[in-house]
Design a binder for these strands. Sequence first.
DNA 1: TTTAAATATGAAATCGGTTTCTATAAAATT
DNA 2: AATTTTATAGAAACCGATTTCATATTTAAA
Lengths: 343, 343
Amino acid sequence: MKQKSITIYDIAKEAGVSSATVSRVIARNYPVSAKTRKKVLDLIDKYDYQPNAVARSLTKKETKMIGFVLPDITNPFFSQVFIEAEKYALTKGYTLILCNSMNTSEMESKYLKILSERQVEGIILMGGRINKKLPDAVEVSEVSQVLDKLPVMMINGKIDGLHCHSVRTDEAKGMELAVNHLVRQGHKKIGLIGGVNGITTTDIKVEAYRNLLLKYDLTFRDSWQIYSGFDVQTGEEAIDKLLMLNKDKLPTALIGINDLVIMGALKACRRKRIKPFDFVGFDNTDLAKNSSPEITSVSHPYSQLGEKAIDLLINASKSSNESKDILLDPYLEVRESCSITKL
Amino acid sequence: MKQKSITIYDIAKEAGVSSATVSRVIARNYPVSAKTRKKVLDLIDKYDYQPNAVARSLTKKETKMIGFVLPDITNPFFSQVFIEAEKYALTKGYTLILCNSMNTSEMESKYLKILSERQVEGIILMGGRINKKLPDAVEVSEVSQVLDKLPVMMINGKIDGLHCHSVRTDEAKGMELAVNHLVRQGHKKIGLIGGVNGITTTDIKVEAYRNLLLKYDLTFRDSWQIYSGFDVQTGEEAIDKLLMLNKDKLPTALIGINDLVIMGALKACRRKRIKPFDFVGFDNTDLAKNSSPEITSVSHPYSQLGEKAIDLLINASKSSNESKDILLDPYLEVRESCSITKL
DNA sequence: TTTAAATATGAAATCGGTTTCTATAAAATT
DNA sequence: AATTTTATAGAAACCGATTTCATATTTAAA
């Protein structure tokens, strides 16, 4: 195990050529005589020679690595974007380094530093805590030493005061898909649950939600729009809060800030043994597909999100320093949750 | 953007010392006078100097990187192990490189090659296709050039003919937890759904299941043990098959090869509007916690799995070439699914 | 046939660190 | 005061590739 691995010099020596020539054979972008090429290729094959990517990175000053920092890969929303990005990056010869910040700012800063030291060529950031109006937000200044040196791509987020590119799902449009769908099902009382005031994606959705109620001339009640969080428990609690209202003051349909809160809402309805509301979630994660009832959900264009992020980042390294922002269209994945009343 | 980054020489020059001295200050394992140290540290601070990990890797012949190849990070079983491994690796100064093989053998081979070129110090393999008795299995010989050179750690799996370490959950013991639990609930007719004949983890569970039925003196019927797969659809189909039996020949409780098939079973029960069976799943993923009803599930000792894998791998690089196999105990996470009859 | 252009290859510098070996200065010992 | 230790720091080699520059050999053009 772990025998000394062979280098380009070993190959060169046995082939009776210089390392430069072997390098040229490998890069195959430079003329080498057919005879020499064959001799070298045969030896590469014979010894299973693999060029050392670390050494190559050092000389070429390119690592072909991209850092991908997100709060938690266990969350299917993030993992789906990651997987699409990874798939696409591979076709472009890049390797992603995934970093789970566990939603803590220390981890986030730490990983940014590690990635920078490892000479990644760019960083993709999702759902981070940088410059958020949150208790343990990361100050931009803290990480700017890192982020200023590297092309940065934010997915579904934007940091004020930081020069970076972004790719986002048009969540206002997503909200329109959701509301429109429910309205067409005949709903006139639509609530919105989950999210945290001050988080961009929440704010966008909430604003769109209110505007749409106006547009469709639907009643809005403060008690129908419940901030809480992003997890299952959040959804359960939201239902509990709603049920404190008079029965005739309840909404008939609920939009969730994501699928998880809808899962929670479903649990609460089951626990309380009430006929569930009609639901529409956001993110279209596997959860929505696998739960029973299945959940109708506004889907991110996952593959586009991943691909555009990689593409822009790769080109960003080359091109000028204007920052690009791309807005992508969501779509609605209609499932049974809106006909749950049939149960 | 992307200004030329400063090197150890820049620091050395401005401090009026040699690069060796700066290196020593950074490594702080070698005597440097207090005066010199301060001068250097001040400059490092002034310029936000970060050592280039690529260059360091080249000289030290250690990258502090470990490859982690799994089929699909979207699957919470894998992502939970990964996240624990990552967390622990970080404390040891290692970075993980996650590779999603998408369950294809080409990707698996490709990633192994990439990881090897990138000089990872070890590879963790989960749920791969190497040497499986499957249509598109990877021949060991194909990847042995890579795997023979590096310490390899398998999590919940073992490859014949490949020298590697392994960490596994004792799934026979897990099955015992499941059966025992159901028996204590008064069940005498217990079925098993999901899995694929020939896959190690399935085989272990099936064998344990049969032995346990004997041990508890319970009836076994062929029709109660349904091979199918590992996903939600699999679970749905299993219920469909079961329902073709006479009502008095149905089991009263079902054990799922994982949580997903139980999710599927729940969906099918709901669709067929039948009072569900009692269920116990495997893996204790978030799914089990978030679904309604919640699913009782046999849990892997996730953090141990991840930590042991990293620990053994790190020490393996150093120590002899005997391979270690570690078996860890699962535990049962009791949730409501076993009292679903209350619904 | 002579000269110019194209092809094929090697020598050596380089990337940014670490480490060994050596030299000097300072401290401790005799 | 002379000698031995010890602390400090530099010079230079090295890790394994790539690439520039120069050179030798062919081939094409004049």
